[in-house]
């Protein structure tokens, strides 16, 4: 930074006016993103907030009701609180596991001398297989009467009779967590491996010379250098996790439309599912649903800030 300042002062004042110094470039670089965001995404967000202060079914007139939606949501809607609880629970079930497993797998795959790309490609298949197929397969596998899982469990004598996975409060959450972990492992692997790729080899060589091996290398060398990538994954997982919707919906989306919204006794109801339910399924309350979306937004901000503070490196982010 000093170098720049000195250089800058060394330039005669006259030509400073004409020269576009490095000071301007960051703004120019940031401009496309900011502009396009302002142009395409800001209005919808503001509109949605205004909408959340109204009662509207999409067709008739909008009636202004102030913050009544929010009040009702937080104090008088047990399903919303339940959905909040469910979402957090499921996040707790899948985020740590995915991180640990993803990192481990990435590291192992990275160490391979051959077959790196092969394993990477195979493990990314769940991530690119369309959710529809996945929901189908999972609800099939865990079917009470004919599912593969129950068949195996009863055959090997672990269980007497098939467990009604899909209708058990914890069973439902566990299956959804499983779906999410299974789906995201490949994705985490890719991100971690991309991060590992740019760690220069000489760092490892130097460590080896110093006598570091295996686990020690991993914990002391690799992981710190992956700090920023890990922060990215943690924060984005929190954000994505709070918006969990695809997996539960597809698991319980029903075959041919006889959907069981929320799973058994609403134990799989997530906040976005509640949002969709309010707007399009059980009701048509767009204003109320917008209030849900905004409350979710605030929660996401809260959780992201917390998780960022907890995981980001201590020194000021360069």
């Amino acid at each position: 930074m000093n170098v720049n300042a000195e250089r800058y002062d060394a330039i005669p004042a006259a030509s400073r006016k004409r020269r576009w110094g490095p000071r301007m470039w960051p703004y120019l670089f940031a401009l496309p993103f900011v502009l396009t965001y302002a142009a395409f995404q800001l209005y919808p967000i503001l509109y949605s907030f205004v909408l959340s202060l109204h009662d509207w079914n999409g067709i008739g007139a909008k009636t202004y009701i102030g913050f009544k939606n929010y009040v009702q949501l937080w104090t008088n809607d047990p399903l919303f609180i339940k959905s909040l609880w469910n979402t957090l629970l499921m996040m707790l079930m899948f985020i740590p596991l995915t991180l640990i497993l993803g990192l481990t797998l990435a590291y192992w795959t990275f160490q391979l001398t051959r077959g790196k790309r092969f394993f990477q490609t195979i493990n990314v298949l769940p991530y690119i297989t369309t959710p529809v197929a996945i929901g189908f397969i999972f609800s099939y596998m865990f079917d009470w009467q004919t599912g593969l899982v129950n068949l195996l469990l009863t055959k090997f004598g672990i269980l007497e009779e098939g467990f009604y996975w899909l209708q058990d409060p914890w069973g439902s959450r566990a299956i959804i967590a499983l779906m999410v972990i299974w789906r995201n492992l490949g994705y985490f692997m890719i991100i971690f491996m991309a991060g590992m790729t740019v760690i220069p080899q000489d760092v490892y060589e130097a460590a080896k010379v110093d006598g570091s091996t295996g686990l020690h290398t991993f914990l002391r060398i690799t992981m710190p250098l992956l700090r920023n990538i890990t922060v990215f994954l943690v924060v984005t997982s929190m954000i994505g996790g709070l918006q969990l919707f695809d997996e539960p919906k597809l698991l319980y989306g029903g075959w041919s439309g006889s959907a069981q919204v929320g799973g058994p006794d609403n134990t799989a109801l997530t906040m976005i599912w509640k949002f969709v339910d309010e707007s399009f399924i059980s009701n048509t309350r767009f204003g109320y649903a917008s209030a849900i979306a905004y409350s979710l937004f605030l929660l996401i901000v809260l959780f992201s800030v917390i998780s960022y503070r907890l995981t980001a490196p201590k020194e000021d982010k360069r």
Binding site: Q167, Q260, V261, P264, D265, N266, I281, S282
Partner: peptide, 12 residues
Amino acid sequence: GVFNALYPLWTK
């Protein structure tokens, strides 16, 4: 919707 949510529980 409520029926679809409840009847598996009644079956179980």
